[in-house]
């Protein structure tokens, strides 16, 4: 999006936003920032400065208050990403279970390096730290879904399924 006027949550999401703000005491609406940034990312895939300015307006806070938070937390994408963002755990326990080899296979299959997006725009691959699923590693996450006990065969099947 390039135009501020096009940044607007659909009515049902806007209703959720107002409900979320009510979780906190009067005047503490800034607490709603993380939940709303998650909603914004679900809506627009990544957080452009227009989106962040829009969120600042919804919460009646300064845009800088949104930028400083969005840049601190690693779940927020600050640049355009593919349709499916694969967040791959690179931490110790997953590595013990062969996470490194499976990761290399994934990158090779998609023809991307870490942080890259596949040529068809379908997949972005990101490395993340521990996803709290160490006993079920190797693990990656795509949006809300955890994919666990990964093998190269499983990765092939997941990518094929999502490529349809």
């Amino acid at each position: 999006m390039t135009n501020t006027q096009t940044v607007q949550f659909p009515a049902d999401t806007l209703e959720r936003v107002h409900k979320i703000i009510k979780r906190y005491p009067e005047g503490k609406q800034k607490s709603a920032l993380l939940p709303i940034l998650h909603l914004a990312q679900a809506e627009w895939r990544w957080l452009s400065s227009e989106v962040m300015d829009y969120v600042a307006g919804l919460l009646n806070i300064k845009p800088i208050e949104v930028y400083e938070v969005a840049t601190f937390y690693t779940m927020f994408h600050l640049e355009p990403v593919g349709e499916h963002v694969i967040e791959y755990c690179r931490t110790g326990p997953c590595c013990l279970m062969g996470g490194g080899e499976v990761y290399d296979h994934l990158k090779k299959k998609l023809g991307v390096d870490t942080g890259g997006t596949s040529a068809d725009g379908k997949f972005t691959v990101k490395e993340v730290e521990c996803l709290a699923a160490c006993g079920w590693g190797p693990v990656f996450q795509i949006r809300e879904k955890y994919y666990m006990n990964l093998t190269t065969e499983k990765v092939d099947a997941i990518i094929e399924d999502l490529s349809k």
């Binding site: 806070i61 937390y73 690693t74 993340v128």
Partner: peptide, 27 residues
């Protein structure tokens, strides 16, 4: 009782960072 999502930051497991985060700030 409400559930609050974090944003991907190990440091927010430290209790005062968690409270900062719950107030909508950097952890």
């Amino acid at each position: 009782l409400f559930v609050q999502p974090g944003g991907g930051a190990y440091i927010c497991g430290e209790e005062t960072a968690l409270l900062e985060s719950l107030e909508g700030k950097r952890g």
